[in-house]
């Protein structure tokens, strides 16, 4: 999958979540996503950025514009070196939360995107990748 643009952003403080939203919006507009799809992917990015900050103890996001078979899309990879998730299936369920959110973060973000993958194990941190295609 060729990547035509890559941006990196650290997620260290609560303001960074806003910056992730703005960056995601910018890339979504560049790719030409419709307004509803833009809003969906920006909201998903917001959820995941907050997870990275609150549960992962901070980390970074790699935001890319990708191309595949003539379609363009936005791909975001959130990485942290936090405690990791022991039971991923459990974490994806609505209502599951170990913190102060509504427990819709992971499952909700998954529903808002075309692609979703998560790699995590206790002690090694978490890596979540999402993509939304035009």
């Amino acid at each position: 999958m060729p990547t035509t643009k890559t941006e990196r952003l650290g997620i260290k403080i609560s303001d960074d979540v806003v910056r992730v939203r703005q960056l995601t919006r910018m890339l979504s507009v560049e790719v030409g996503l419709g307004l509803v799809d833009q809003t969906k992917v920006v909201t998903a990015a917001s959820e995941l950025a907050r997870n990275t900050l609150d549960y992962g103890g901070g980390g970074e996001v790699i935001a890319e514009i990708v191309e595949q078979g003539g379609r363009r899309g936005v791909r975001l990879t959130f990485e942290d070196k936090g405690p990791g998730i022991a039971d991923i299936e459990q974490a994806l369920k609505d209502g599951f939360t170990s913190g102060r959110g509504m427990g819709l973060g992971l499952g909700g973000a998954k529903r808002l995107c075309n692609e979703f993958s998560i790699v995590s194990a206790p002690g090694t941190g978490t890596k979540v990748t999402i993509a939304r295609w035009k």
Partner: peptide, 13 residues
Amino acid sequence: RPAVAITLVELGL
């Protein structure tokens, strides 16, 4: 906004 409403519903809120 409509896009926000659609997204919130999809999110499960």
